[in-house]
């Protein structure tokens, strides 16, 4: 082992509890873990590809449904949620940096802030889902908007004067929009919950002081997952809320 560079020799002599036997160094272990995470993210992108495909097919064939039905979504809440998710992505990226620099306490605090961001996102999403439920804006033929909901979109004219469709003329199969809305945001919401669970896991490990500049892989991998969740929302927001 005399050909090892000093840092790697140093790592090996530590017999770190977090370096698996089959890896020569933390660096090699990290590179392998990161590639594994990217391959997992590839499968996630393909999974979301399915719902994006459904969106593309229905929007290209029935643009009038999307243009008419998107008025029921609250652009303001959508923009707030985008901001919350971007901010939590920022604190996550900062947490990875803190772990890489041995700033253990800062890393723990930033992971906690990221987790709070996830809670905020789900809280706002819950408010939105609840109002959709109360207004009868459900999937496919369960789409039965209440008179109040239909009345409400008539008063958005200042915002929607450019739209070709009239608020009072419900297009055929209008429920398709909410089928796709709930599939896309629902699948995304499940990923937010999964990401928050993973952040909770690295938060506990960070609080126990298990991460260092030599071993920070799990924070980085969880970060990649959380950024992917953010990245998908970056597309969902204009595709669902900002239809022109």
């Amino acid at each position: 082992m005399s050909n090892l560079s000093p840092p790697e020799a140093h790592e090996n002599s530590e017999h770190s509890a977090f370096l698996a036997h089959h890896f020569e160094s933390h660096k090699q272990q990290f590179a392998a873990g990161k590639l594994g995470m990217w391959i997992f993210l590839l499968t996630e992108i393909l999974l979301f590809g399915g719902v994006f495909c459904a969106y593309a097919v229905y929007r290209s064939n029935h643009p009038e449904i999307f243009e008419w039905a998107h008025r029921f979504l609250d652009k303001f809440l959508g923009a707030i949620n985008t901001t919350v998710l971007i901010a939590s992505s920022f604190t996550m990226a900062w947490a990875v940096r803190a772990a890489q620099k041995n700033q253990t306490r800062l890393c723990t605090v930033l992971l906690a802030v990221t987790l709070l961001g996830g809670c905020g996102f789900l809280g706002i999403k819950f408010v939105e889902y609840k109002s959709k439920w109360e207004e009868g804006l459900m999937v496919a033929h369960y789409f039965k908007p209440t008179p109040e909901a239909l009345e409400h979109i008539k008063h958005l004219e200042a915002d929607t004067a450019h739209l070709k469709s009239k608020p009072e003329e419900i297009p055929r199969n209008a429920g398709i929009f909410f089928s796709i809305y709930f599939c896309m945001t629902g699948l995304h919401g499940l990923h937010v919950i999964a990401g928050m669970s993973a952040i909770g896991w690295v938060l506990v490990r960070s609080a126990k002081g298990q991460f260092s500049s030599a071993y920070f892989g799990p924070v980085d991998y969880v970060g990649l997952y959380w950024h992917l969740v953010d990245l998908i929302w970056i597309y969902l927001f204009p595709l669902l809320y900002l239809i022109h």
Binding site: S25, H26, K27, F30, R97, S213
Partner: peptide, 15 residues
């Protein structure tokens, strides 16, 4: 030194 990171650490101002 052995305590420096083996990956590129993104500067805070970039983030």
């Amino acid at each position: 030194n052995p305590h420096s990171s083996y990956v590129h650490v993104v500067p805070l101002w970039v983030l």
